[in-house]
């Protein structure tokens, strides 16, 4: 366990060094600040997605569900779209990015808890119905967003696009700082409830049996997930398969059910994957493609391989 963490920490540092220094020819004062920002964004997003996924998988008792598969990213996009659409371009533009982020996150928090209540309900619905409902809810949200894109005024649309689909290489610095603060708080929260999450793995009845306030713990966990998804989506837009990939790699590496270990290792794996992926994208693939597509591709293949291997047992 200690060796795994050490190795991953070294790998993260190595990948970071690679990203920061690869191909900088002389213009350090120009390249370094920009690359540092990219690095920070990658690490923040990676950590947010990793923690959100591990927590979410425990709550839903599934190793193949992620907030993103269940439509949380699409929900964030929809919330942002609704806000810009209803306030109009001028107001949205006048709003500081920070206020917009806070508003988005607030609405997202409420909406995701509602979604979770509606879909998971009292827990009597089977897991698989829940999954399907989540996937379809995700499509519903992105369809409504797509619908609103068409009917909204073009100026508002531009504001929204700039707001939603920033990439790892062009990021608002204030938002980055806020993202870092919110992330730190949420991650600390996740580690603080790590032992309760361990118990949650017993399922609802088992957890109540040993005296866990199941409802409250689940709601708290889902609130954390909503905040973390908001952070990562606000910074770089939806990243579909990253969480799935890193959470499952982390379980493999730690070989334990303890959340203290899995949360930490998943964060490190995500950081390595994103930073290394971005470095490769910049230098080997010469920016030909987006990190999101790359991750979908690799993550999708890994997911299917896992699914088939798992069904063999």
């Amino acid at each position: 366990m200690r060796r795994v963490v050490l190795a991953l920490t070294l790998a993260t540092l190595g990948a970071a060094a690679l990203l920061l220094t690869w191909g900088v020819d002389g213009h350090w004062d120009f390249a370094l600040p920009r690359r540092l920002e990219t690095l920070a964004a990658l690490v923040i997003v990676g950590a947010a997605v990793a923690v959100a996924t591990v927590v979410f998988q425990t709550v839903t008792a599934s190793r193949i569900l992620t907030p993103s598969i269940m439509g949380f990213d699409s929900l964030y996009v929809l919330v942002a779209t609704l806000i810009v659409w209803s306030t109009g371009a001028a107001t949205a533009l006048a709003m500081p990015p920070l206020a917009l982020f806070a508003l988005n996150t607030g609405v997202m928090l409420g909406a995701s808890l509602l979604l979770f209540r509606a879909v998971i309900g009292d827990g009597t619905r089977g897991l698989y119905t829940t999954v399907l409902a989540g996937v379809i809810a995700g499509t519903l949200f992105s369809s409504i967003s797509g619908f609103l894109f068409r009917v909204m005024d073009p100026n508002a649309f531009d504001v929204l696009m700039a707001d939603l689909f920033a990439s790892f290489t062009s990021i608002d610095t204030t938002l980055l700082a806020v993202g870092a603060v919110v992330l730190t708080a949420a991650v600390a929260g996740a580690f603080a409830m790590a032992r309760r999450l361990d118990v949650l793995a017993l399922g609802r009845d088992g957890a109540i049996g040993v005296g866990l306030d199941h409802r409250r713990t689940v709601m708290l966990a889902m609130a954390l997930v909503a905040v973390l998804v908001s952070v990562s989506t606000a910074l770089v837009g939806p990243v579909t398969f990253l969480g799935l990939l890193v959470a499952n790699l982390a379980y493999r590496l730690t070989g334990t059910h303890r959340h203290g270990a899995n949360l930490l290792v998943a964060m490190l794996v995500a950081a390595v994957a994103l930073v290394l992926g971005q470095a490769l994208l910049q230098h080997v693939l010469a920016f030909n493609g987006t990190l999101g597509s790359l991750i979908s591709l690799v993550g999708g293949v890994v997911f299917i391989a896992m699914l088939i291997k798992e069904s063999r047992r």
Binding site: A61, A201, L202, G203, D205, G206, Y251, G255, T256, H257
Partner: peptide
């Protein structure tokens, strides 16, 4: 009872 993954 629900069996958590990877638990000893």
């Amino acid at each position: 009872s629900h069996t958590p993954a990877r638990i000893t």
